[in-house]
Design a binder for these strands. Structure first.
Length: 467
RNA sequence: GCCCCCAUCGUCCAGCGGCCUAGGACGCCUGCCUUUCACGCAGGUAACACGGGUUCGAAUCCCGUUGGGGGUGCCA
Protein backbone atom coordinates (compact mmCIF):
# COMPACT_ATOMS: atom_id res chain seq x y z
CA UNK A 1 0.00 0.00 0.00
CA UNK A 2 1.28 3.43 -0.89
CA UNK A 3 1.89 5.56 2.14
CA UNK A 4 -0.05 8.78 2.12
CA UNK A 5 0.74 11.55 4.56
CA UNK A 6 -0.71 14.98 4.95
CA UNK A 7 0.55 18.30 6.17
CA UNK A 8 -2.51 20.00 7.55
CA UNK A 9 -1.79 23.42 9.00
CA UNK A 10 -4.34 25.88 10.27
CA UNK A 11 -3.81 29.10 8.35
CA UNK A 12 -2.98 31.49 11.14
CA UNK A 13 -0.59 33.87 9.43
CA UNK A 14 3.04 33.30 8.53
CA UNK A 15 4.48 29.78 8.50
CA UNK A 16 6.16 29.01 11.77
CA UNK A 17 9.38 27.00 11.95
CA UNK A 18 7.59 24.36 14.01
CA UNK A 19 5.03 23.89 11.26
CA UNK A 20 7.80 23.79 8.71
CA UNK A 21 9.42 21.03 10.73
CA UNK A 22 6.14 19.06 10.75
CA UNK A 23 5.84 19.54 7.01
CA UNK A 24 9.44 18.44 6.57
CA UNK A 25 9.04 15.24 8.58
CA UNK A 26 5.90 14.35 6.66
CA UNK A 27 7.76 15.00 3.45
CA UNK A 28 10.82 13.03 4.55
CA UNK A 29 8.62 10.10 5.41
CA UNK A 30 6.74 10.30 2.12
CA UNK A 31 9.98 10.58 0.15
CA UNK A 32 11.69 7.79 2.03
CA UNK A 33 8.78 5.42 1.43
CA UNK A 34 8.03 6.52 -2.11
CA UNK A 35 4.72 7.69 -0.81
CA UNK A 36 2.52 10.67 -1.44
CA UNK A 37 1.99 13.86 0.47
CA UNK A 38 -1.13 15.94 0.63
CA UNK A 39 -1.43 19.56 1.62
CA UNK A 40 -4.64 20.31 3.41
CA UNK A 41 -5.59 23.64 4.88
CA UNK A 42 -7.50 23.28 8.13
CA UNK A 43 -9.72 26.31 7.95
CA UNK A 44 -12.95 25.05 9.47
CA UNK A 45 -13.04 28.16 11.61
CA UNK A 46 -14.38 31.06 9.53
CA UNK A 47 -11.84 33.46 11.05
CA UNK A 48 -9.05 31.51 9.38
CA UNK A 49 -10.35 31.89 5.85
CA UNK A 50 -8.09 34.55 4.39
CA UNK A 51 -6.38 34.09 1.03
CA UNK A 52 -3.19 35.78 2.19
CA UNK A 53 -2.85 33.14 4.88
CA UNK A 54 -2.73 30.45 2.23
CA UNK A 55 0.12 32.19 0.47
CA UNK A 56 1.89 32.37 3.77
CA UNK A 57 1.88 28.58 3.89
CA UNK A 58 2.42 27.67 0.27
CA UNK A 59 5.27 30.02 -0.55
CA UNK A 60 7.61 29.07 2.27
CA UNK A 61 7.08 25.39 1.56
CA UNK A 62 7.93 25.92 -2.06
CA UNK A 63 11.00 27.92 -1.14
CA UNK A 64 12.16 25.14 1.13
CA UNK A 65 11.64 22.60 -1.62
CA UNK A 66 8.96 20.71 0.28
CA UNK A 67 6.67 19.39 -2.42
CA UNK A 68 3.26 17.78 -2.28
CA UNK A 69 1.36 15.53 -4.64
CA UNK A 70 -2.18 16.71 -4.01
CA UNK A 71 -3.82 19.86 -2.81
CA UNK A 72 -4.02 22.26 -1.29
CA UNK A 73 -7.40 20.98 -0.23
CA UNK A 74 -9.48 23.28 1.93
CA UNK A 75 -11.54 21.88 4.72
CA UNK A 76 -13.89 24.80 4.33
CA UNK A 77 -14.69 23.55 0.83
CA UNK A 78 -15.40 20.08 2.13
CA UNK A 79 -17.78 21.31 4.76
CA UNK A 80 -20.77 19.50 3.25
CA UNK A 81 -19.08 16.15 3.89
CA UNK A 82 -18.40 17.11 7.47
CA UNK A 83 -21.98 18.27 7.94
CA UNK A 84 -23.23 14.97 6.60
CA UNK A 85 -20.99 13.12 9.02
CA UNK A 86 -22.40 15.13 11.91
CA UNK A 87 -25.94 14.37 10.78
CA UNK A 88 -25.08 10.71 10.57
CA UNK A 89 -23.71 10.78 14.10
CA UNK A 90 -26.85 12.42 15.42
CA UNK A 91 -29.03 9.91 13.65
CA UNK A 92 -27.05 6.97 14.90
CA UNK A 93 -27.32 8.29 18.45
CA UNK A 94 -23.62 9.07 18.78
CA UNK A 95 -24.25 12.77 19.12
CA UNK A 96 -26.86 15.17 20.43
CA UNK A 97 -27.86 18.81 20.49
CA UNK A 98 -26.92 21.08 23.34
CA UNK A 99 -27.91 24.68 23.95
CA UNK A 100 -25.55 25.50 26.81
CA UNK A 101 -22.73 27.99 26.55
CA UNK A 102 -19.37 27.21 28.06
CA UNK A 103 -20.13 29.55 30.96
CA UNK A 104 -23.41 27.87 31.68
CA UNK A 105 -21.78 24.46 31.60
CA UNK A 106 -19.08 25.61 34.01
CA UNK A 107 -21.69 27.05 36.36
CA UNK A 108 -23.57 23.79 36.37
CA UNK A 109 -20.36 21.96 37.16
CA UNK A 110 -19.59 24.32 40.02
CA UNK A 111 -23.08 23.96 41.46
CA UNK A 112 -22.88 20.21 41.25
CA UNK A 113 -19.47 20.25 42.90
CA UNK A 114 -17.92 18.61 39.86
CA UNK A 115 -14.61 19.51 38.25
CA UNK A 116 -14.85 22.18 35.56
CA UNK A 117 -15.93 20.86 32.22
CA UNK A 118 -18.95 19.59 30.40
CA UNK A 119 -20.69 16.72 32.09
CA UNK A 120 -23.14 15.58 29.48
CA UNK A 121 -25.80 18.02 30.68
CA UNK A 122 -27.91 17.88 27.54
CA UNK A 123 -27.38 14.23 26.74
CA UNK A 124 -30.83 13.05 27.63
CA UNK A 125 -32.78 16.22 27.06
CA UNK A 126 -33.71 15.22 23.52
CA UNK A 127 -33.24 18.78 22.32
CA UNK A 128 -34.07 19.61 18.71
CA UNK A 129 -31.69 21.53 16.51
CA UNK A 130 -31.86 25.29 16.68
CA UNK A 131 -29.71 28.32 16.01
CA UNK A 132 -28.27 28.30 19.54
CA UNK A 133 -27.45 24.62 19.50
CA UNK A 134 -24.13 22.94 19.15
CA UNK A 135 -23.77 19.23 18.49
CA UNK A 136 -21.79 17.26 21.01
CA UNK A 137 -20.38 13.79 20.65
CA UNK A 138 -21.48 11.31 23.28
CA UNK A 139 -18.23 9.89 24.62
CA UNK A 140 -18.43 6.42 26.17
CA UNK A 141 -18.67 6.42 29.97
CA UNK A 142 -16.14 3.69 30.30
CA UNK A 143 -13.50 1.88 28.37
CA UNK A 144 -10.17 2.90 26.97
CA UNK A 145 -8.79 4.18 23.74
CA UNK A 146 -5.31 3.14 22.77
CA UNK A 147 -3.39 5.18 20.24
CA UNK A 148 -0.61 3.24 18.54
CA UNK A 149 2.00 5.88 18.01
CA UNK A 150 5.08 5.07 15.96
CA UNK A 151 7.23 7.40 18.02
CA UNK A 152 5.71 7.00 21.47
CA UNK A 153 4.36 3.48 21.51
CA UNK A 154 0.87 2.86 22.83
CA UNK A 155 -0.79 5.81 24.52
CA UNK A 156 -3.90 5.00 26.53
CA UNK A 157 -6.75 7.35 27.37
CA UNK A 158 -9.74 6.42 29.44
CA UNK A 159 -13.06 7.42 27.99
CA UNK A 160 -14.29 8.64 31.36
CA UNK A 161 -11.79 11.51 31.11
CA UNK A 162 -13.13 12.65 27.77
CA UNK A 163 -15.96 15.15 27.93
CA UNK A 164 -18.70 15.26 25.33
CA UNK A 165 -16.90 17.49 22.89
CA UNK A 166 -18.37 19.86 20.34
CA UNK A 167 -18.40 18.52 16.81
CA UNK A 168 -20.57 21.25 15.27
CA UNK A 169 -20.67 24.87 16.32
CA UNK A 170 -23.88 26.81 16.77
CA UNK A 171 -23.29 28.48 13.40
CA UNK A 172 -23.57 25.06 11.83
CA UNK A 173 -19.91 24.54 11.00
CA UNK A 174 -18.30 21.26 12.04
CA UNK A 175 -15.10 21.44 14.08
CA UNK A 176 -11.70 20.19 12.97
CA UNK A 177 -12.13 16.94 14.86
CA UNK A 178 -14.86 15.87 12.45
CA UNK A 179 -13.04 17.33 9.49
CA UNK A 180 -9.95 15.43 10.51
CA UNK A 181 -11.65 12.06 10.69
CA UNK A 182 -13.69 12.54 7.52
CA UNK A 183 -10.87 13.95 5.43
CA UNK A 184 -8.24 11.49 6.59
CA UNK A 185 -10.64 8.70 5.70
CA UNK A 186 -11.65 10.17 2.34
CA UNK A 187 -8.09 10.96 1.39
CA UNK A 188 -6.82 7.53 2.38
CA UNK A 189 -4.26 8.93 4.74
CA UNK A 190 -2.07 6.12 6.06
CA UNK A 191 0.13 8.11 8.46
CA UNK A 192 -0.71 11.14 10.52
CA UNK A 193 2.53 12.88 11.47
CA UNK A 194 2.13 16.03 13.53
CA UNK A 195 3.12 17.87 16.66
CA UNK A 196 2.73 16.42 20.12
CA UNK A 197 0.39 19.25 21.05
CA UNK A 198 -2.27 17.35 19.10
CA UNK A 199 -1.80 14.05 20.90
CA UNK A 200 -4.67 14.76 23.29
CA UNK A 201 -7.10 15.33 20.45
CA UNK A 202 -6.35 11.97 18.89
CA UNK A 203 -8.66 9.85 21.06
CA UNK A 204 -11.55 12.14 20.11
CA UNK A 205 -10.83 11.69 16.44
CA UNK A 206 -10.53 7.96 17.06
CA UNK A 207 -13.96 7.91 18.66
CA UNK A 208 -15.43 9.70 15.66
CA UNK A 209 -13.59 7.37 13.36
CA UNK A 210 -15.19 4.32 14.93
CA UNK A 211 -18.64 5.90 15.21
CA UNK A 212 -18.47 6.75 11.52
CA UNK A 213 -17.41 3.21 10.81
CA UNK A 214 -14.32 4.18 8.84
CA UNK A 215 -12.48 0.93 9.48
CA UNK A 216 -8.75 0.77 10.05
CA UNK A 217 -7.45 4.14 11.28
CA UNK A 218 -4.20 5.70 10.10
CA UNK A 219 -0.99 5.19 11.97
CA UNK A 220 -0.10 8.11 14.20
CA UNK A 221 3.25 9.68 14.94
CA UNK A 222 3.45 12.65 17.27
CA UNK A 223 6.61 14.67 16.88
CA UNK A 224 8.36 16.28 19.82
CA UNK A 225 7.65 19.97 20.13
CA UNK A 226 10.13 22.66 19.18
CA UNK A 227 10.72 24.88 22.19
CA UNK A 228 12.42 28.15 23.09
CA UNK A 229 15.26 28.65 25.57
CA UNK A 230 12.75 28.49 28.40
CA UNK A 231 11.58 25.13 27.07
CA UNK A 232 8.15 26.43 26.21
CA UNK A 233 6.44 25.56 22.98
CA UNK A 234 7.56 27.97 20.26
CA UNK A 235 5.00 30.70 19.99
CA UNK A 236 4.33 33.36 17.42
CA UNK A 237 3.81 35.92 20.13
CA UNK A 238 6.97 35.36 22.11
CA UNK A 239 9.51 33.95 19.72
CA UNK A 240 11.07 34.70 16.38
CA UNK A 241 9.64 31.81 14.45
CA UNK A 242 8.67 33.05 11.03
CA UNK A 243 10.25 30.82 8.44
CA UNK A 244 10.20 33.59 5.84
CA UNK A 245 11.83 36.01 8.25
CA UNK A 246 14.73 33.64 8.62
CA UNK A 247 15.11 33.38 4.88
CA UNK A 248 14.90 37.17 4.63
CA UNK A 249 17.77 37.39 7.11
CA UNK A 250 19.95 35.40 4.79
CA UNK A 251 19.50 31.86 5.94
CA UNK A 252 19.63 29.50 2.99
CA UNK A 253 16.65 27.17 2.51
CA UNK A 254 18.94 24.14 2.34
CA UNK A 255 20.57 25.07 5.62
CA UNK A 256 17.20 25.65 7.24
CA UNK A 257 15.95 22.26 6.09
CA UNK A 258 19.12 20.58 7.29
CA UNK A 259 18.83 22.20 10.69
CA UNK A 260 15.16 21.36 11.04
CA UNK A 261 15.82 17.73 10.13
CA UNK A 262 18.27 17.55 13.03
CA UNK A 263 15.69 18.59 15.59
CA UNK A 264 14.17 15.40 16.92
CA UNK A 265 16.17 13.14 14.69
CA UNK A 266 19.79 12.38 13.96
CA UNK A 267 21.56 10.31 11.33
CA UNK A 268 23.05 7.06 12.64
CA UNK A 269 26.52 7.94 11.35
CA UNK A 270 26.76 11.32 13.12
CA UNK A 271 27.25 13.24 9.88
CA UNK A 272 24.99 16.22 10.45
CA UNK A 273 25.51 18.51 7.51
CA UNK A 274 24.60 16.65 4.34
CA UNK A 275 22.43 16.81 1.24
CA UNK A 276 18.72 16.31 1.64
CA UNK A 277 18.82 13.21 -0.57
CA UNK A 278 20.99 11.49 2.02
CA UNK A 279 18.71 12.58 4.82
CA UNK A 280 15.76 11.06 2.99
CA UNK A 281 17.64 7.84 2.60
CA UNK A 282 18.59 7.67 6.27
CA UNK A 283 15.33 8.95 7.73
CA UNK A 284 13.29 6.55 9.83
CA UNK A 285 10.11 7.71 11.50
CA UNK A 286 10.52 5.27 14.36
CA UNK A 287 13.91 6.80 15.15
CA UNK A 288 12.43 10.19 15.87
CA UNK A 289 13.00 11.32 19.46
CA UNK A 290 10.33 11.81 22.07
CA UNK A 291 11.78 14.76 23.95
CA UNK A 292 11.23 18.36 22.91
CA UNK A 293 14.02 20.15 21.09
CA UNK A 294 15.33 23.68 21.51
CA UNK A 295 15.39 25.64 18.28
CA UNK A 296 18.94 26.90 18.64
CA UNK A 297 19.80 29.75 16.31
CA UNK A 298 23.48 29.41 17.21
CA UNK A 299 23.58 26.00 15.64
CA UNK A 300 21.56 27.22 12.68
CA UNK A 301 24.16 29.94 12.20
CA UNK A 302 26.91 27.40 12.05
CA UNK A 303 25.09 25.19 9.59
CA UNK A 304 24.19 28.19 7.48
CA UNK A 305 27.80 29.34 7.49
CA UNK A 306 28.89 25.94 6.27
CA UNK A 307 26.38 26.06 3.44
CA UNK A 308 27.44 29.58 2.48
CA UNK A 309 31.11 28.65 2.43
CA UNK A 310 30.36 25.62 0.29
CA UNK A 311 28.78 27.81 -2.40
CA UNK A 312 30.63 28.51 -5.66
CA UNK A 313 31.64 32.14 -5.34
CA UNK A 314 29.51 33.15 -8.35
CA UNK A 315 26.45 31.73 -6.61
CA UNK A 316 27.38 33.55 -3.46
CA UNK A 317 27.58 36.80 -5.36
CA UNK A 318 24.14 36.20 -6.90
CA UNK A 319 22.56 35.30 -3.60
CA UNK A 320 24.19 38.25 -1.89
CA UNK A 321 22.59 40.73 -4.26
CA UNK A 322 19.46 41.50 -2.21
CA UNK A 323 21.58 42.01 0.91
CA UNK A 324 24.43 43.98 -0.50
CA UNK A 325 23.13 47.52 -0.02
CA UNK A 326 22.70 47.00 3.64
CA UNK A 327 18.99 47.69 3.58
CA UNK A 328 17.43 47.40 7.02
CA UNK A 329 20.74 46.97 8.76
CA UNK A 330 22.74 49.34 10.89
CA UNK A 331 25.05 49.94 7.94
CA UNK A 332 23.62 50.98 4.60
CA UNK A 333 24.57 53.15 1.67
CA UNK A 334 23.27 54.66 -1.47
CA UNK A 335 23.03 52.36 -4.45
CA UNK A 336 25.05 54.87 -6.46
CA UNK A 337 27.99 54.37 -4.17
CA UNK A 338 27.94 50.63 -4.58
CA UNK A 339 30.29 49.02 -7.05
CA UNK A 340 29.43 45.45 -7.97
CA UNK A 341 32.89 44.87 -9.43
CA UNK A 342 34.50 45.76 -6.11
CA UNK A 343 32.18 43.42 -4.28
CA UNK A 344 32.99 40.66 -6.75
CA UNK A 345 36.66 41.23 -5.99
CA UNK A 346 36.23 40.75 -2.25
CA UNK A 347 33.29 38.31 -2.35
CA UNK A 348 35.34 35.21 -1.66
CA UNK A 349 36.85 36.87 1.39
CA UNK A 350 33.45 37.93 2.66
CA UNK A 351 31.98 34.52 1.96
CA UNK A 352 34.17 32.73 4.44
CA UNK A 353 33.44 35.22 7.19
CA UNK A 354 29.66 35.35 7.28
CA UNK A 355 27.14 32.96 8.76
CA UNK A 356 24.16 34.70 7.17
CA UNK A 357 23.85 36.83 4.08
CA UNK A 358 22.54 39.70 6.17
CA UNK A 359 26.00 39.99 7.73
CA UNK A 360 27.57 40.96 4.42
CA UNK A 361 27.14 44.75 4.83
CA UNK A 362 29.19 44.66 8.01
CA UNK A 363 32.18 43.47 6.03
CA UNK A 364 31.90 45.77 3.04
CA UNK A 365 30.20 48.88 4.36
CA UNK A 366 33.47 50.78 4.79
CA UNK A 367 34.17 50.45 1.09
CA UNK A 368 30.98 52.19 -0.04
CA UNK A 369 30.23 54.70 2.69
CA UNK A 370 31.89 58.06 3.19
CA UNK A 371 32.52 57.97 6.91
CA UNK A 372 33.16 55.07 9.19
CA UNK A 373 32.18 54.95 12.81
CA UNK A 374 34.65 54.03 15.47
CA UNK A 375 33.14 51.96 18.22
CA UNK A 376 35.39 53.28 20.94
CA UNK A 377 33.75 51.05 23.52
CA UNK A 378 34.41 47.82 21.70
CA UNK A 379 37.02 45.36 22.87
CA UNK A 380 38.71 45.40 19.50
CA UNK A 381 39.06 49.18 19.50
CA UNK A 382 40.41 49.25 23.03
CA UNK A 383 42.95 46.57 22.30
CA UNK A 384 44.11 47.94 18.97
CA UNK A 385 43.95 51.67 19.55
CA UNK A 386 43.76 52.55 23.22
CA UNK A 387 46.29 49.96 24.30
CA UNK A 388 48.17 49.87 21.01
CA UNK A 389 51.72 51.19 20.98
CA UNK A 390 52.60 54.45 19.24
CA UNK A 391 49.21 54.78 17.61
CA UNK A 392 49.29 58.61 17.31
CA UNK A 393 52.74 58.45 15.72
CA UNK A 394 51.59 55.76 13.29
CA UNK A 395 48.53 57.76 12.29
CA UNK A 396 50.54 60.92 11.82
CA UNK A 397 53.02 59.13 9.62
CA UNK A 398 50.19 57.55 7.64
CA UNK A 399 48.52 60.90 7.09
CA UNK A 400 51.76 62.25 5.77
CA UNK A 401 52.65 59.40 3.43
CA UNK A 402 49.13 58.68 2.23
CA UNK A 403 48.92 62.24 0.96
CA UNK A 404 51.39 61.31 -1.72
CA UNK A 405 51.73 57.53 -1.83
CA UNK A 406 50.98 55.84 -5.11
CA UNK A 407 47.30 54.82 -4.75
CA UNK A 408 47.45 51.07 -5.13
CA UNK A 409 47.29 48.18 -2.74
CA UNK A 410 50.92 47.23 -2.94
CA UNK A 411 52.28 50.72 -2.37
CA UNK A 412 49.81 51.50 0.44
CA UNK A 413 50.62 48.26 2.19
CA UNK A 414 54.35 48.86 1.82
CA UNK A 415 54.04 52.36 3.19
CA UNK A 416 52.25 51.20 6.31
CA UNK A 417 54.68 48.36 6.84
CA UNK A 418 57.56 50.78 6.53
CA UNK A 419 56.01 53.00 9.19
CA UNK A 420 55.76 49.99 11.48
CA UNK A 421 59.36 49.03 10.88
CA UNK A 422 60.61 52.56 11.49
CA UNK A 423 58.66 53.03 14.68
CA UNK A 424 59.11 49.46 15.89
CA UNK A 425 55.38 49.01 16.35
CA UNK A 426 52.52 47.13 14.79
CA UNK A 427 51.16 49.48 12.19
CA UNK A 428 48.76 47.32 10.19
CA UNK A 429 46.05 47.10 12.82
CA UNK A 430 45.80 50.85 13.48
CA UNK A 431 45.74 51.40 9.72
CA UNK A 432 42.91 48.92 9.40
CA UNK A 433 40.94 50.57 12.17
CA UNK A 434 41.44 53.99 10.61
CA UNK A 435 40.22 52.85 7.23
CA UNK A 436 37.48 50.36 8.12
CA UNK A 437 36.43 51.49 11.58
CA UNK A 438 37.19 48.13 13.12
CA UNK A 439 40.05 45.74 13.71
CA UNK A 440 38.28 42.75 12.16
CA UNK A 441 37.53 42.17 8.54
CA UNK A 442 38.49 41.14 5.06
CA UNK A 443 41.98 41.64 3.62
CA UNK A 444 42.46 45.37 3.60
CA UNK A 445 44.46 46.87 0.80
CA UNK A 446 42.84 45.78 -2.44
CA UNK A 447 39.53 47.16 -1.29
CA UNK A 448 41.08 50.23 0.34
CA UNK A 449 42.71 51.21 -2.94
CA UNK A 450 39.25 51.56 -4.49
CA UNK A 451 38.32 54.31 -2.05
CA UNK A 452 39.07 57.96 -2.80
CA UNK A 453 42.33 59.18 -1.33
CA UNK A 454 40.67 62.13 0.38
CA UNK A 455 38.12 59.92 2.11
CA UNK A 456 40.89 57.73 3.49
CA UNK A 457 42.84 60.79 4.66
CA UNK A 458 39.72 62.10 6.39
CA UNK A 459 39.28 58.81 8.21
CA UNK A 460 42.89 58.80 9.38
CA UNK A 461 42.37 62.32 10.71
CA UNK A 462 39.15 61.30 12.38
CA UNK A 463 40.77 58.47 14.24
CA UNK A 464 43.78 60.67 15.11
CA UNK A 465 41.43 63.08 16.83
CA UNK A 466 40.30 60.32 19.12
CA UNK A 467 43.71 59.34 20.47
C1' G B 1 -7.00 20.53 39.73
C1' C B 2 -7.54 16.60 36.01
C1' C B 3 -5.56 13.96 31.59
C1' C B 4 -1.35 12.94 28.46
C1' C B 5 3.82 13.14 27.13
C1' C B 6 9.00 13.56 28.24
C1' A B 7 13.95 13.07 30.97
C1' U B 8 22.22 11.40 28.08
C1' C B 9 27.28 17.27 28.12
C1' G B 10 24.73 24.51 28.46
C1' U B 11 22.32 23.04 23.36
C1' C B 12 21.16 19.29 19.26
C1' C B 13 21.97 14.28 18.24
C1' A B 14 24.39 8.82 18.88
C1' G B 15 23.57 4.85 22.33
C1' C B 16 18.06 0.11 21.59
C1' G B 17 21.37 -5.20 28.13
C1' G B 18 27.96 -6.46 27.83
C1' C B 19 31.94 -3.07 22.43
C1' C B 20 30.53 3.01 27.47
C1' U B 21 36.82 4.66 31.75
C1' A B 22 29.36 7.19 27.31
C1' G B 23 30.57 8.96 20.97
C1' G B 24 29.68 13.19 17.33
C1' A B 25 28.12 18.36 16.42
C1' C B 26 27.20 23.56 18.17
C1' G B 27 28.95 26.79 21.95
C1' C B 28 32.99 27.98 25.16
C1' C B 29 38.55 27.63 26.26
C1' U B 30 43.82 26.62 24.53
C1' G B 31 47.40 26.05 20.73
C1' C B 32 48.92 25.99 15.45
C1' C B 33 48.21 28.69 10.87
C1' U B 34 47.85 34.15 9.93
C1' U B 35 50.91 41.56 9.34
C1' U B 36 43.59 41.97 11.21
C1' C B 37 39.32 39.05 11.78
C1' A B 38 37.73 34.65 10.00
C1' C B 39 38.36 29.83 7.61
C1' G B 40 41.19 25.50 8.43
C1' C B 41 43.85 22.18 11.71
C1' A B 42 45.12 20.00 16.72
C1' G B 43 43.63 19.68 21.69
C1' G B 44 40.49 20.76 26.03
C1' U B 45 35.72 21.62 28.80
C1' A B 46 31.12 19.28 29.91
C1' A B 47 26.05 14.64 30.75
C1' C B 48 23.39 9.13 31.72
C1' A B 49 17.86 13.74 37.23
C1' C B 50 17.16 10.77 41.91
C1' G B 51 15.71 6.16 44.55
C1' G B 52 14.39 1.25 44.28
C1' G B 53 14.05 -3.27 41.58
C1' U B 54 15.06 -7.20 37.33
C1' U B 55 19.82 -9.32 35.60
C1' C B 56 26.06 -12.60 36.07
C1' G B 57 25.86 -7.52 33.86
C1' A B 58 21.67 -1.32 33.00
C1' A B 59 22.55 5.04 30.20
C1' U B 60 19.74 1.06 27.96
C1' C B 61 14.14 -3.08 30.94
C1' C B 62 10.28 -2.31 35.23
C1' C B 63 8.31 0.69 39.41
C1' G B 64 8.35 5.09 42.22
C1' U B 65 10.05 10.15 43.19
C1' U B 66 11.45 14.74 41.39
C1' G B 67 11.71 18.01 37.45
C1' G B 68 10.06 19.87 32.65
C1' G B 69 6.37 20.20 28.89
C1' G B 70 1.60 19.69 26.36
C1' G B 71 -3.70 19.56 26.67
C1' U B 72 -7.91 20.88 29.30
C1' G B 73 -12.29 26.31 23.73
C1' C B 74 -18.54 26.73 19.82
C1' C B 75 -8.92 27.49 17.95
C1' A B 76 -6.35 23.95 15.39
Amino acid sequence: MTTRVRFAPAPTGFLHVGSARSALFNWLYAQSTNGEMILRIEDTDAALRKPEFIDAIVKPLQTLGITWDEGPYYQSQRQQFHVEAVEQLVESGHAYFCNLTREQADELAAEAGLPAGYHGWSRDKGLADSAECVVRFKTPDEGEIVIHDVIRGDVTFSCADLEDFVIRRSDGSPTFLVANAVDDADMNITHVIRGEDLLNTTPKVMLLWDALDFGEPPTYAHLPLLVNEKRKKLSKRRDDVSLMDFLAQGYLPEAMINHLALLGWGPPDDVEIRPIAEIIELFKLENVNKGSAFFDVTKLNHINGEYIRALPVEDFIDMAEPFVYGIDTEISWDKDNYDAAVFAMVAADVQQRVDTLAEIPRFIGWIFTKDVEFDVESKGFKKAIIKGKMVPEILDAMAERFATVEWNAEAMNAAVSAIGDELGARSQVPARVAITGTNAGIPLWDAAATIDRQIVLDRIAALRSLV
